[in-house]
Design a protein around this nucleic acid. Sequence first.
RNA 1: GGGCUUGUAGCUCAGGUGGUUAGAGCGCUACACUGAUAAUGUAGAGGUCCGUGGUUCGAGUCCACGCAGGCCCA
Length: 1200
Amino acid sequence: MKYPEYKQPLNYGQVGEDILAWWKEHGIFEKSVSSREGQPTFVFYEGPPSANGAPGIHHVMARTVKDIFCRYQTLLGKQVPRKGGWDTHGLPIELQVEKELGITKEDIGKKITVEEYNQRCRETVMRFKAQWDDLTEKMGYWVDLDDPYVTFEPEYIESCWALLKKLYDKGLLYKGYTIQPYSPAAGTGLSSHELNQPGTYRDVKDTTIVAEFEVKRDEKSEKLFVLADGLPVFITAWTTTPWTLPANTGLAVGKNIRYAVVRTFNPYTYEPQVLVLAKDLVRRYFLYLDIEGTGNEIGVGSGHLMIGAETSKHEVNGSVVETLNQEFRKALVGKDGKVLHWSVVGEFTGAELVGISYERLFGSEDGFPTFEGEERAFRVIPGDFVTTEDGTGIVHISPTFGADDFRVAQQNDIPALMVMDDQGKLSPIVDRTGRYVAQMGEFGSRWVKNYDGHDDTAADYRTLDVDISVRLKERSRAFKVEKYEHTYPHCWRTDKPVLYYPLDSWFIKTTAVKDRLIELNKTINWKPESTGSGRFGNWLENLVDWNLSRSRYWGTPLPIWRTQDGTEELCIGSIEQLKTEIDKAVAAEVMTHNPYANGEKVDLHRPYVDDIFLVSPSGLPMYRETDLIDVWFDSGAMPYAQWHYPIENGEKFQKNFPADFIAEGVDQTRGWFFTLHALAVMLEDSVAFKNVMANGLVLAKDGQKMSKRLGNAVDPFATIKQFGPDATRWYLIANAPPWDNLKFDPAGVTEVQRRFFGTLFNTYSFYALYANLDEFQTREFDRISQSDLSELDRWILSKLQSLIVEVRGHLDGYDPTKAARAIQDFVTDQLSNWYVRLSRRRFWKGELTADKRAAYETLQECLVVVAQLMSPIAPFFGEWLYKNMTAQASTSPPDPLSKKEGAPDMPQNLNFTAGSPLLGRGAGGEVAGTAPVASVHLTLLVEADTARIDAKLEERMELAQRISSLAHSLRKKSVLKVRQPLQRILVPVLNDSTKEQVGFVEDLICAEINVKHIEFLDDESGVLVKSVKPNFKRLGQQYGPRLKAVGARIQQMTAAEISKLEKEGSLAVEVDGQPITLAPDDVEIRTDDLPGWLVATDGPLTVALDVTLTDELRQEGLARELVNRLQNLRKDSGLEVQDKIRVTLADQQPELTAAVAAFGDYIRSETQALALTFAADVKGGSVLEFDDYSVPVHLEVATA
RNA sequence: GGGCUUGUAGCUCAGGUGGUUAGAGCGCUACACUGAUAAUGUAGAGGUCCGUGGUUCGAGUCCACGCAGGCCCA
């Protein structure tokens, strides 16, 4: 059987399709898992995609990453089960359905039943499943599509319930509140979706206050008081909702913002005070007056005193200065007749203010209620949302009425101001109708906004905001009160202002395990590392409890039933338990019958679970809490729920937990990565994954985000069809590390295809062509021994072993990009462009000698190993190459030496591990009862045979490559074509080892650049001119600041000095009048000039070319020309490579005749000419064009 | 606004622990080669290494502050 030969160009898309069909036919994916039965498991978790949209090219990226490492671990012999999954719940699906039906959330349960709605969601969510499955196959992503986990299935939901119950039993699931937009007039919370309706944000004029909070004098605040000269110190904060001030429990500053301490007077009471506010905002509240117009500014009065005053503005030194008209000067004079000067007396950063305590604004001594945790309240804390855009650069915090406030308060252990309501339940100071609770002292029962329909244009109408402002002014606690126009959200149904209000929510108490989350995160190998320590680490550091509640319909329902008063509750952990509880409820006549009594299929979705009522221990009915849970819980629960654990399959779960590896987009950091981690830590006190790759985005080639709207989205199907899956995958991986964003340019895929796959294909074709001609058979044993290989063979095999080490290292370290680039460089630069190019003659010359066999075996091994190494990244082409390389071999007679089962003996000189790549007999290829299947994906990856790595050999081959390159360059400069042989090149060498190294590869160099020999020039020759270059690294460490002078001195070294330094090992010189001693290591000696020769240099290497032409050289050049022309003629005439010819030349040119006389044998052997004769007259032939003349020629195929 | 991240040739990217002349591929130009040929070789053009300060004898590399793009969070 022969190696398959192909016409160019290869259709890579077709290769993908053919291999895919072959995989399917032989169940290769299944075998890649089943053949590893009993081996260690490599656990991989598939992050479930949602099939409600078409897959994009970025999915190919993410899945390529996943696939690479799963295939790689399989090659290492591990078993890698890959269960697929689908994420099926969540808001995007609901919104999609609502859009398609033309309804809103409000209509659910009215225009459409919940049952119908959810049915619609169920259908929608799998709409693109077929497309996804198709892409999965075509891109070569191996994942089990037949038995995926689906998050809407009852078993999956049941597992989620069981996990929730575990958390509940640990006390980690609790009911609390979050701050959400709320419409008191409508009595309902509003979603962000509703808030984004047009017209909800309107301009309104509200009373705003800059309030003053009096600082308590203690150790932390002493630094303020030392500046205050006995005056009270206040921190200022601005609010557009003064009604929230009585609920204030904290003040937030920006850590890096600078704050000024200002000595001034209260504008309403004229009491002297010291205020703190952001330095950048001082000018907003204090005027700089230039009374005399001199440009000398003095701070006078507080700004708002001048409201209505007539001032004129002009510029002084680039800043606007307001000048007060004379008659208003009096207004600035206080009661005691003094001018109200102000001045900045100090400055601090926000960080320096954190921890300072202050007095409550409306305290219990004034009739306001005390509250729990009060002793922890009224502190300055850092807030990441604080700016100096408006206000004072300090933000008033009321945890019950702001989402930021709530979060930052929780992080800093600031309590919320909550009071007991009639039923003994804790409640905020505003009730659900929008009015203060009765306990609020003088403001008790007041409406916070006009929710009761008062005529707010009436003269006696006073808002709560105004009354609070008045009270603060009286108490010298208001610095500035003014009407301010701003936009504020309004309820789209009632037109009344929205409040940010605490609404019930269920939480998982992730903060209880915060330290453990952080600790275990440090054991996870993140790629890139910064995502783990930065984005994820910071997120953990600022962790708040996980809000589970969603007021939605299509999702996993919260399995908690409660009595009306909330005093009794039950968390259900299984369908079995639910049935039991229903039976109890039926017995207590809370339900009429058990809907599941007769084994009916259980659907745990709404509305069915909402119709189940349970009975409490005290006999009261219990109703399900209507919330659904966050869909992220669904996906975070997949390590457990995919096996229906903990209901069953405990062993299976244990075996597959935690994951060795997961990979998703970096946008999942706070999504899936977090929920996996959080649940694993809380449930198992373990990480959920040991290695994780967060890949970046795939952008359009101009760096823009891909979007259908812009029309720059890349269609993955078209791409794969056009370029084939391998080039697509290779490009995605090799072009940039997966964690960087990738600019997807189809031209780049073309380049990969041409340069890498094209070169590799050419190399294979070359091999196949000649191996078939020679009927070369791969032999697993009795190969040419290492010592009989040529220098070049041993070199490329050494490089190959180095490549194995390198690729394994990169893949072990989860860096596929470096692996791909290493393979690419090996194939294009080393294998194709050096090994094959220099070995070409060995393949097509003569009989199948030992040397020729060595060349075949070497190239064969390289190609097979490359097929294996590339197969995780380019699974189809790797398979294609492997099959082509081994199909022929697998038909050879059984190897008599390999008698051990499953582990053929390897010849000693090759030292392959079991599952030799040479014959396609991977371990696992032998599935019981079937013939061996030669799939590269079933083999075991070769181990590098480090004994075959020869660093010296690799080094001297690099010398050969560089010397050849320099010689080519010199030929170019001298206009001497390579076909013209030259006598010698000159290479100066400064040490024997270089001389020896180059000597080994002299033949290669001579052949490559067509010279007769290399002449080494050493010191003995006396023609070397040495120059010297300072070794700055060494000198810098030694001489530091004097380096420049020393360097200059070294560059002036004379030949005598250089030689002295070399001979004596040191040289004393003088620099700036000071003696120093130079060592040989302080300088780099090179010979980059040969007087009288044209030289080329590359670093320390220098080459000169002897361009003298003798008659003999000329004749040989002519012979080569002739060979070349004849070869062209052969090719143009359509001759086969092995055809023999007879040649007749016109006897016209004496030079040519002389050349043929001298080199006839050479010409005949090169052109496979049986005869090469001259005739006076040549008819019916072609004409060979030489440089200076034309020669008629007749060529015929020799039949005998 | 905060966190993370990226910024090097026209394009895509390399540039351990600081070392003076910053590289590769593609593309472009010229020449050569012609039994791997839609390949290959040699040479050339092409750089304020995002900016500004700082540390240092020396900064693409370290530090600070910015600018621009991206992601996540607000």
